[in-house]
Design a protein around this nucleic acid. Structure first.
Length: 219
DNA sequence: ATCCCGAGGG
DNA sequence: CCCTCTGGAT
């Protein structure tokens, strides 16, 4: 059995994206993205929790500290109190304050527009940076690979199993396979599909509209 | 119990 | 590569 060609993977990936597009249309960002700064902080806070949980605390958070300059004056302790209902609240509070301080001291109070600069901010990795570049600045040069995108990429066999715990390699695999025009909507559409159909524990293959193209269907 | 739109450090 | 950080919803 010869190994699958990239062209075959590309065809499957495109068909998957086209069907998602027909099912969902453009999916908007559910987090506060009233400003690039708010989006950075919101995404940073969203690790291992739901957007709904994040949206419960951000009104108070951004009410008290609306701008990077404001949040830079806060202590991690008082921020932690506000975001305590989220997971990992101590490290998130520290990262949020330090990121705000760095945005002020190194970037003149403006959220930077490049992957390199964004990922230098504490608490901001490639996933967060890709979301911010995409949603706030309309820059689509990568794909935000979170737990859902990663899982689906591997279920569709678009990325080899050896990359399952290396999101950067999974992202590079997807960028190689998917035409650029599809990159922008991957994150939000795949996440929705991952939550509603292709869950981590019990994927609903019985009611999945992708079974005919999915190498993992029924396993 | 198990899951939730990660990042940093060892 | 692994582990830790963490609480709320279901």
């Amino acid at each position: 059995m010869p190994r699958e060609t990239n062209a075959a993977k590309r065809a499957r990936a495109i068909e998957f994206c086209e069907r998602l597009d027909a099912m969902y249309g453009p999916v908007e960002c559910f987090l506060d993205h009233g400003s690039p700064f708010r989006l950075v902080i919101s995404v940073l806070l969203s690790a291992q929790t739901t957007d709904a949980q994040v949206n419960k605390v951000t009104p108070e958070l951004f009410g008290r500290w609306p701008t990077p300059a404001d949040l830079a004056t806060a202590t991690p302790g008082e921020v932690a109190e506000v975001i305590r209902s989220l997971g990992f609240y101590k490290s998130k509070a520290r990262h949020a304050v330090e990121a705000a301080r760095m945005i002020v001291s190194e970037y003149g109070g403006e959220v930077p527009h490049t992957m390199e600069e964004l990922t230098r901010l504490p608490g901001v990795g490639r996933k967060t940076a890709n979301i911010v570049l995409n949603v706030s600045f309309g820059i689509v040069e990568g794909i935000a690979v979170d737990t859902h995108v990663n899982r689906i990429a591997h279920r569709l066999a678009l990325s080899p199993k050896t990359h399952e715990r290396e999101p950067l390699k999974t992202e590079q695999d997807l960028l190689k396979i998917l035409p650029r025009e599809y990159w922008r909507d991957v994150n939000h559409q795949w996440i929705r599909f991952g939550r509603e159909v292709c869950g981590a524990k019990a994927p609903k293959c019985g009611e999945c509209p992708m079974v005919d193209i999915c190498p993992s269907a029924g396993r």
